[in-house]
Amino acid sequence: MMVQFLKNRALTFIVLGLLGTVPLLMFWSGSDYLSLATKLVCLCIAATSLNLILGYGGMVSFGHAVFFGIGAYAVGIPAYHSVYGGMDLIATSNGFFHIGFAIVLAALFALITGAISLRTKGIHFIMITLAFSQMMFYFLLSLDTYGGDDGLTIDERSQLPFISLDNSVHMFLLSFGALLICLYMVHRIVNSRFGLVLQGAKDNEERMAAIGYNTFAYRLTAYVISGAMCGLAGALFANSESFVFPELIDWTRSGELIFMVILGGGGTIIGPVIGGIVFIVLEDVLSRFTIYWHLPFGIMLILAVLLGRTGIANWFKSDGAIKKPAEGNHE
């Protein structure tokens, strides 16, 4: 138990230590991967938020990118009006407003769609979460004011005190700090009373109801927290890229987030971060060798599933046992 615990914790610190320093060192030594690293960190936050409901809660949301997109547009739209006028109510470049707006909108969308989606189970839940994200995707496509399918360029990044998001080091550090906070929050949540109920309901919902828990309410709460966290990721991403576009919500993006969580190790704190790093590095490295990089990538994905080798974070557990995702309690 203890060795396993330490190994996993050591792994967490090593991964985060490298993620926080390597991009900066590379930046100062002349090769600029900083914006790629910032994008990676934002994706890690999104994957971490998905991990809360997927890895710990067992909810296979196939529309998680929608919260990312909402967060991104919650920065893009006020920034647009701040520059070009109109919509006085939200027209501002105040970064606190942007981030707060992103979190609140994403949480609200999660509350409404979650209340409907969580009434369903299994395949229906996968499909309905997918449908809600597609709905938002087509909605954004039809918004000509904000660029429609061309997307919306952010001419003025969020304004925050003491730091400037135009500075790529500041941008990276802000995102990385947000990732650390989110990871710590998830760590606290999953070990709290709430977290144990959530994990119990993943494993055996009937039992949790029989000892007196309203599992729906706990799941919905987790869903809202997760959505809000992913909204934050989107807001940071929008600032980093200074560009938002509907494809952020494309269902393949949601698929990629699931991929990061499961490949890295759902239900572990550091898993989604490892998954995110592997994903971005693979994308970057493979796409250097061949424009057909999706081919080896897809084959790897299929093999990882067929061989039960998902969950990189679990490889480092002391007993070496790799838990296949297919296992678990099917009552």
Binding site: V60, T252, I258, F259, H294, G298, P325, G328
Partner: peptide, 16 residues
Amino acid sequence: RSHLDHVLATFGLILV
């Protein structure tokens, strides 16, 4: 396998 495995593997198939 679980539905989640189906999703991941067939997502890989799409890429292929």
